[in-house]
Design a protein around this nucleic acid. Structure first.
Length: 750
DNA sequence: GGAGCTTCAATTTTT
DNA sequence: TTGAAGCTCC
């Protein structure tokens, strides 16, 4: 077993320990994934049937990576038999298998966060509550944390302490929303993300035969990132492992940064209580970073009370000290960092992909984008909307969902009138009210108007019937046609494809391309099956519902600087890391200052940030930054002081009168080499607001004008007068538009 | 139904 | 500042 030779002694011990409960505390950069994959390979090589192994991760990416690594060692055909995936995807599959036990059909829909919010919003509206007080996002997070603690709506209502909290925050009816939400999800044959774990718990609790089956199937269970498990996940793992107790959990309490989402660090701290005879392994040698970085990170995390004792060390070089930079403004911070990347690249000849800028909040990215653009440094922002969250993708997928599960209310709402087919909001509202009154799913209602009279006009009714026929036609093909056939048919005959094709604005073109890309992806999926295997649209949805990361490494060819939040950087590493915005109220976040636990989580976040760096790490803070459009002064973060100064190198602060301040920033620095879009954007921002009012009166027929959104166009004619005066313009690419003169922002070009 | 205005709020977010 | 969502007018 050659792969074992690559392990150091403590890694080796952990990877080759077979029986019984064990916990691996893996410091940052200590080869955690390597141990996990080696252990699985070791089990298989020692005769354990891959079929009996369950490995749970938190991200698809981690699961994919592990699967690949294991394939490389034991071969793909063996690796394939390991049950490996995210908690959500593994248990979603198990739930599909036993859905009938819970009264669900096996083709249940998985609601994403948007769906959940939208449903909660309609419930709030239907109950006549104020959505200023009952904010859908807040309500959802209350419900979510209840579910993660295995509290059902009925139990929620009975827990006086929980209800009291809601009453204190002026939301006494929250339990009723939860109840409604629970019912509506059930009626729609839908489970949200939390349900996948919650219902798995119900399944294992209420059906002993199911529990026993999986207890005996999974002889070996491995859990990655154990510090991020919530109570619901903890209990599933505990139950499944109860017979064989061959449970191996791997994690790092110092890197727990998702408590705000219900992750319970106690799970790792209490492992000992559940399994008193457990074996503890510690991976303390860091292979990633220089001594300075490792020691600096240690000195920071030492300020946390709540932690498992360990000493992370490294044999790597001492390396450079961590640089601390102070700038006057956020824009200057951006420029300083961009310049530093430029200089470092010049000096070392490294790729841009060796550099990362990490920040606490997404909003901070702007200054860095601008500065990097001006220096023509390619970058990529991680986070933001992933492919599957784009509206056009969600719309098309909503058709797929509706075809597979017509009770899916959220999918129904999305597509019933998209593309426009003359079924308006009031009609839809009437349908929803009627479906509530009749106590039936909305699809049953509209399929059977003759049976359930509804007060809507004949025109709308026949349009709905047409819609029903269209969806039913696809439904008929569901089990006989490959996913790609139906998908392409839907995209075409629903009108979505044409609608986006006809939109020639840059956004429209991009949207159409996205749809094409999705269809191509489905085609690839359909073709990926074994000989003679039919992969249906339902199979595709099963795959796609839990895929959130875009992982489109299409533009890999250009190495790019990475920009991301620290949360998003977990698990990654870069030779050069810039941690920016190290200011009180930003990092640590203002919201985290109230409790010790929150502050400790921020500190762990900082620890994660520091330990991303391999060679050079730079910290920056600004004395002044724009916050919500207002300039705000700021203090350096306490975290800087928490680093032992022996590992720091403070840049000489620039003098306040050094000129390069606020107002000069943008216009002065725009150079001829700057990217087109960059300079264009700043020109638009600089232009005085009322400019167009003066200009519009000068416009004559035949003039070529520029419109902010539609681009260049030619004035065809005028209509009306005074404040109603309209202008008809032909835009290249956007066609003819009639605009109100008083609103249109036009600029005469000749 | 759509365009364009006003208004309001504003961490982090593996699924 | 940005953006989403609501409102108003054709």
């Amino acid at each position: 077993m050659e792969f074992l030779n690559e392990l150091n002694p403590s890694q080796y011990e952990a990877a080759t320990h077979v029986e019984g409960p064990m916990m691996v505390i893996a410091g940052a950069g200590s080869g955690k994934t390597k141990v996990l994959t080696s252990r699985i390979a070791y089990l298989i090589e020692n005769g354990v049937d891959a079929f009996h192994i369950l490995a749970l991760t938190f991200t698809n990416k981690a699961a994919r990576e592990m699967k690949n690594r294991i394939s490389n060692v034991v071969g793909e055909s063996e690796a394939k038999n390991v049950t490996m995936g995210t908690f959500h995807s593994v248990f979603a599959r198990i739930l599909r298998h036993h859905a009938d036990r819970l009264g669900y059909p096996s083709n249940f829909t998985i609601y994403d966060t948007q769906d959940s919010k939208s449903l909660i919003k309609s419930i709030i509206k239907e109950m006549g509550l104020d959505d200023k007080i009952y904010k859908p996002g807040v309500v959802l997070s209350r419900i979510s944390s209840a579910k993660n603690n295995l509290i059902s709506a009925t139990q929620y209502e009975q827990k006086s302490d929980i209800v009291a909290v809601d009453r204190m925050s002026a939301k006494p009816q929250l339990y009723l929303i939860y109840k409604q939400y629970e019912q509506r999800c059930f009626k729609a044959s839908a489970m949200d993300f939390d349900d996948l774990l919650f219902k798995t718990n119900l399944l294992l609790r209420d059906f002993p035969d199911v529990l026993q089956y999986y207890q005996h199937r999974f002889h070996f269970i491995l859990v990655d990132e154990y510090q991020d498990t919530n109570y619901s996940q903890y209990l599933i793992v505990k139950k499944l492992a109860a017979v064989h107790e061959n449970l191996c959990v791997v994690g790092d309490d110092a890197q727990s940064i998702y408590a705000f989402r219900g992750a319970d660090i106690e799970n790792i701290l209490n492992f000992e209580k559940d399994y008193p005879d457990y074996k503890l392994f510690k991976l303390e040698q860091n292979y990633r970073s220089t001594k300075n970085i490792v020691e600096a990170a240690n000195s920071v995390i030492g300020n946390n009370k709540n932690q498992i004792k360990k000493t992370v060390w490294t044999q790597n070089d001492t390396g450079n000290k961590i640089k601390v930079v102070r700038t006057l403004t956020d824009n200057e911070e951006g420029r300083w960092i961009a310049n530093s990347i430029y200089d470092n690249k010049q000096a070392s000849g490294e790729l841009h992909s060796n550099f990362a800028i990490l920040y606490r909040t997404n909003a901070q990215s702007r200054a860095f984008e601008e500065a990097l653009r001006k220096l023509n440094i390619p970058y990529r922002i991680y986070g933001g909307l992933s492919f599957y969250q784009r509206k056009e993708i969600k719309d098309l997928i909503a058709y797929f969902r509706l075809v597979c599960n017509p009770n899916d209310e959220e999918a129904f709402k999305r597509v019933i009138n998209y593309p426009k087919r003359g079924i308006g909001d009031s009609t839809i509202d009437t349908l929803f009210v009627a479906s509530q009154n009749y106590q039936i799913p909305i699809w049953e209602l509209i399929e059977n108007f003759h049976q359930y009279p509804v007060n809507i006009n004949g025109g709308a009714k026949s349009k709905i019937e047409q819609f029903v026929m269209m969806i039913n036609r696809y439904r008929g093909q569901l089990e006989t046609h490959p996913a790609s056939d139906i998908a392409e048919d839907i995209a075409r005959s629903s009108g979505i494809s044409k609608l986006l094709y006809d939109d020639k604005s840059p956004e429209g073109v991009a949207r159409h391309e996205n749809i094409q890309e999705l269809l191509a992806g489905i085609k690839e999926f359909s073709d990926s099956g074994e000989e003679g295997e039919l992969l249906t649209l339902g199979d595709f949805l099963l795959d796609v519902a839990l895929l959130t990361d875009a992982d489109d490494d299409k533009d890999k060819e250009t190495p790019r600087v990475s920009l991301m939040t620290i949360h998003a950087s977990k698990g990654l590493e870069f030779p050069h890391v810039y941690i920016v915005g190290l200011e009180e109220n930003l990092f640590p976040s203002q919201m985290a200052l109230h409790s010790r636990a929150d502050l400790e989580e921020e500190r762990r976040l900082f620890y994660v940030a520091l330990t991303r760096a391999e060679k050079k790490c730079t910290l920056s803070y600004s004395m002044c930054r724009y916050l919500y459009g207002r300039p705000t002064t700021s203090e350096p973060s306490r975290f800087i002081q928490e680093i032992d100064p022996a590992y720091l190198e403070i840049e000489v602060p620039n003098k306040p009168e050094s000129g390069r301040s606020l107002n000069l920033a943008r216009p002065v620095l725009s150079t001829p080499s700057s990217g087109l879009s960059g300079s264009f954007k700043s020109v638009q921002q600089v232009r005085p607001m009322n400019d167009h009012l003066k200009k519009n009166s000068d416009i004559k027929v035949g003039h070529v004008v520029m419109h902010e959104k539609f681009g260049k166009g030619k004035v065809l004619s005028f209509e009306g007068a005074g404040s109603d005066k309209k202008v008809k313009i032909f835009f290249a690419g956007n066609g003819e538009k009639t605009l109100l003169m008083k609103f249109a922002k036009l600029e005469v070009l000749d």
